[in-house]
């Protein structure tokens, strides 16, 4: 259960490459809302924007009866393994393999805390503690970045609309999907939070070489500006 009076740090330490110009507390976590001014951000973002969205609420569950438990809690589920769906409130539900799920809220949904408040007690369902670094990436040159850090073909042609890919990004295990966010094609990426700083620095370094770079959370979620 989250203690809302304590502000958690993001698993990502920004520093060194790009310092945020505005940090704010979102869902109990201090995250970068902006890097530079709005013009600079949008210019970067057109080429490659990378934002830390680790503050979004997250819930993990696994086990042979996880599907049954989630259905009992009226959660929309992907039918296929390694796929995802978006709920009506904007949360994403990722089916990792056959019987493990990752649920990440949108800034305005609260599915994860709701599920966490009533953790599974039934046989064959286990809560999975999540402490992910969660990123969103987009831009006209994002494929060039992805081609440098991932051996899989993540282009629109190859990566199915609702496919979840568990692969290696920049040499570490990561989960990737592609979605349309406010009409823009973006990539969502999760990795273990302890690798968050490494992942951030690696991706931002490459993005900057390609003319993009770090952007704030509010760049993708205007409601958090």
């Amino acid at each position: 259960m989250q203690n809302t009076s304590i502000i958690q740090p993001s698993p990502i330490t920004y520093g060194h490459i790009a310092e945020p110009s505005k940090i704010g507390s979102v869902h109990g976590m201090a995250v970068a809302l902006k890097f530079g001014n709005g013009d600079e951000e949008s210019k970067r973002r057109q080429l490659i924007g990378i934002a830390d969205i680790s503050c979004l609420s997250r819930f993990g569950v696994k086990g042979p009866n996880a599907v049954q438990w989630l259905r009992a809690h009226k959660v929309d589920l992907p039918e296929e393994r390694n796929s995802w769906v978006a709920t009506s409130s904007g949360a994403v539900v990722l089916r990792l393999g056959n019987s493990e799920f990752l649920i990440e809220d949108s800034p305005t949904s609260s599915l994860a805390p709701s599920l966490a408040s009533d953790p599974p007690k039934m046989f064959g369902v286990y809560t999975v503690r999540r402490s992910d670094a969660s990123l969103v990436l987009s831009g006209s040159r994002v494929q060039e970045l992805l081609a440098e850090v991932c051996t899989l073909d993540l282009s629109e042609k190859a990566l199915g609309k609702n496919a979840v890919v568990m692969t290696q990004v920049a040499g570490i295990s990561a989960t990737v999907l592609r979605q349309s966010l406010n009409g823009e094609t973006v990539y969502r990426l999760w990795c273990d939070g302890t690798y968050g700083t490494y992942m951030w620095h690696t991706l931002v370094e490459i993005a900057e070489e390609l003319g993009g770079g770090a952007v704030g959370l509010s760049s993708y979620f205007k409601e958090l500006a």
């Binding site: 740090p9 698993p11 302890t194 968050g196 690696t202």
Partner: peptide, 29 residues
């Protein structure tokens, strides 16, 4: 290539840096 060298950091890493820690690689950490 770019020489990717993944490192894991604990949540207290920044504190250790500020406290003058000399770091050592232990596995990926």
């Amino acid at each position: 290539g770019r020489g990717l060298h993944p490192h894991r950091l604990t949540p207290m890493h920044a504190w250790h840096e500020e406290a003058g820690a000399e770091f050592v690689e232990v596995g990926p950490w």
